[in-house]
Design a protein around this nucleic acid. Sequence first.
DNA 1: CTGATGTAAGTAAGTACTTACTTTTATTCC
DNA 2: GGAATAAAAGTAAGTACTTACTTACATCAG
Lengths: 268, 268
Amino acid sequence: MSRATTRDGASGAAAQPPPAAQAAPAGGRMAADERRLQIVRVAVRLFSERGFRGTTTKEIAHAAGVSEAIIFRHFATKDDLYAAIIDYKACAGTGACPFAPETEQPPFVEAVRRPVEEAMRRGDDRAVFESLALTMMQHHQEDPEFLRLLMYSALEGHQLAQIFWDKNARVLYDFLGAYIRERQRGGAFRDVDPLVVVRAFAGAVTHHSLINSLWDRDPARRILHITNEEAAREFTKILLRGIVADAPGVKPARERKRSAPVKKGKKK
Amino acid sequence: MSRATTRDGASGAAAQPPPAAQAAPAGGRMAADERRLQIVRVAVRLFSERGFRGTTTKEIAHAAGVSEAIIFRHFATKDDLYAAIIDYKACAGTGACPFAPETEQPPFVEAVRRPVEEAMRRGDDRAVFESLALTMMQHHQEDPEFLRLLMYSALEGHQLAQIFWDKNARVLYDFLGAYIRERQRGGAFRDVDPLVVVRAFAGAVTHHSLINSLWDRDPARRILHITNEEAAREFTKILLRGIVADAPGVKPARERKRSAPVKKGKKK
DNA sequence: CTGATGTAAGTAAGTACTTACTTTTATTCC
DNA sequence: GGAATAAAAGTAAGTACTTACTTACATCAG
């Protein structure tokens, strides 16, 4: 394993030892910024896999293809590294990031925002919710680190959780809630607390992702086989029927008499 | 002699040293079963707070008011202790438990099941979903360890997660899904995949609990101030409107133009 | 040369788990 | 009843290893 000692003494020849087959090719010497960024990326992966407490600096160093001391040259403590991850995940792709090139994907809420705002402008409710759901689920699927990191940090009580929450969730509630409120004012949606609607919808979507990435990982054993597109469509259909205003003159559908007998014996 | 401990000289007198003021009153000597159970309870609390990896056997021992060696007398390894917790949480209250008196609350799905089945028998859809939601949320609120333990075990990849999943989630999907399917056959619900409905509803409810117990803990800062009862009622209202069959002869309510001001006296 | 990038080899404080021993308690035999 | 006894509940003080973090020293680019 590439192990370090490797005696470079073995002739200065470029014969690079295979670089540990890590995600990080790491090869040789790097500029500080590069190395720093690489370490952050590796750490994100490991923290998301095993949590902050569950990941050792040794593992991070090994996965990055450097010695442990390098980690501590770039980050004074393990907590510092975690803090750097916050910055990284919170600002990557926004251009405002001290490191992290723009090729990185934008943070959660920004990724979600664009298609949804476009649909809002058109007043297309179905598209608003469907694209929101779809973008969220795709994001979760493509970047499973995100959900795991989020859950770990919440459980471990790291402030990362709070920052994520304020930067992502609150923003979502604000701007989707505002849209719903507006549609209510326009008479399109019935009178429900918009925040309850957001919670119900975002809950269904997020929970779906969470289940697929944490519990029901094996697609073969999955309770619910469904593509992201189908899920987005169905969740949206249910929600929209659930919140559109009743057509004038038509009574609300609830409280119907149960014509259909529900036989009690049934399964068990 | 290591006797170290001192106090032998103190004659048989009961002069108990203050018992370390732990959550566990623990006081003095216990029968093996008692002690075992107490350790499990303490460990559940600590594991749910800091995860399996994040909790040391020393901490568990200290919190239980005994020395570390006692832990290892009752459980060969830390993993064994985790396994005991599985049994404990999976069977407490069912009577089938090797330890754990019946005073313990029943596991998740059993707690949820009773009121819901009763409502199913009456064919009262609203009560089915509302009591399901309410029971789930109350369970989450009263036993916050449950959710945390569940999340930690899923993230840490412990088999506890799989067992929980099979014993609770799958059962819920089966029996609520069956109910929905039956109501569809009776013409009460429209044609949606029942499992999608379960996921949407359970997702909204679970996510709500998860947020309240992990992120939005401070009620003052909470995005959504709402009692469990209100949440259950609102989620149910949205879902039911979303899945009831259209009244014959009435066109589906979706795709409406927004004209009607929504004021029709809201039901409630 | 100089300063940044790198490393091997520490250290002190944990970590899960053991060992060797003491104290309590329930049972037995008188 | 009450001593004798065996089993079980308890402990202090280890062991072997890992952890986050350091130190002293080498190497390379500009």
